[in-house]
Simulated scan of single mutants.
Amino acid sequence: MSGPIKLLIADDHPVVRDGLSGMFARDPDFEVLGEAADGAEALALAKELRPDVILMDLRMPGMDGLTAITELAKQGSAARVLVLTTYDTDTYVVPAIEAGATGYLLKDAPRDELLRAVRAAAAGESVLSPSVASRLVSRVRTPDAGPLTQREIEVLELVAAGNTNRETAVRLFISEATVKSHLLNLYLKLGVNDRAAAVAEGFKRGLLSGP
């Protein structure tokens, strides 16, 4: 991607918006195009400003973040949505990813982690906060969690071959949001936080063949 990563910040707390805007403004790799106080405003500004990444809170008055993510996906928005919230349970995480979010971070994430996550989201990579992943992994490490499904293995194979989420979706005739959902599930089952670790663990477990 040439030029700075263009951001839209959606959060109902002005102090949070100001803090995030100030943080990204200090880094020349980013440009904050605008701020939204709720989901409806985020939708309008996303259409007008065409950001690369939207930092989206989930719980906002009026239209919440989950509804906004769903609407962005329906509208075919090219913006990547990175959820930034205080809620870390699978009640919030899974619906957000399934709705089309590229990643999920908590608001207490360190600055460097947030910057890396935004860069990864802009590149179309799925991002899951380590703290979120560790909590969810502990919940799915039960006898009924089961092995990877055939579809999850197919997704992992395409990721290992270097395909992006969008390319994987095209090859499997599914939506990009569904690919993200499969990635989230296999991350949890493999006990990893990102694509590279998933591929490495896939080879380690014999799920993938090759060098």
Rank of each mutant, 00 (worst) to 15 (best):
M1G: 15
P4F: 03
A10F: 02
A10L: 03
A10I: 00
D11K: 00
P14C: 07
P14H: 08
V15K: 09
V16I: 11
R17A: 11
L20V: 06
M23N: 07
M23G: 11
D27A: 07
D29N: 12
F30V: 05
L33H: 08
E35A: 14
A37I: 10
G39I: 01
A40M: 09
A44V: 10
E48S: 15
L49Q: 13
L49A: 13
R50Q: 15
D52N: 09
I54S: 07
L55Y: 04
D57W: 00
D57M: 03
R59I: 15
M60V: 04
G62W: 00
G62S: 08
G62R: 02
D64M: 03
L66V: 10
T67Q: 14
E71P: 07
L72V: 08
K74L: 12
G76H: 06
A78S: 14
A79H: 03
L82F: 03
L82R: 01
L82Q: 04
D88S: 15
T91P: 02
V93Y: 00
V94K: 11
V94T: 12
V94D: 12
A96T: 03
A96C: 13
G100I: 03
G100L: 01
A101M: 02
T102V: 15
T102H: 13
T102M: 10
Y104R: 00
Y104N: 02
L105W: 00
D108Y: 01
P110I: 03
E113H: 08
L114T: 05
L114W: 00
L115M: 12
R116D: 15
A117H: 04
A123D: 12
G124K: 02
P130K: 02
A133G: 08
S134P: 08
R135W: 00
R135Y: 00
V137E: 09
V137I: 15
S138H: 10
R139M: 15
T142N: 12
T142E: 13
D144P: 05
A145K: 09
A145P: 11
G146K: 12
P147F: 12
L148K: 06
R151H: 15
E154C: 06
E154V: 05
E154D: 14
V155M: 05
L156R: 02
T164H: 03
T164P: 04
T164F: 01
R166H: 14
V170D: 15
F173I: 11
I174E: 09
E176D: 11
E176L: 06
T178G: 10
L183S: 12
L186Y: 13
L188V: 07
K189H: 12
V192I: 06
N193L: 07
D194K: 01
R195H: 13
R195K: 14
V199I: 11
E201A: 13
K204M: 13
R205T: 10
S209R: 11
S209Q: 14
S209D: 15
G210Y: 05
G210F: 02
P211H: 09
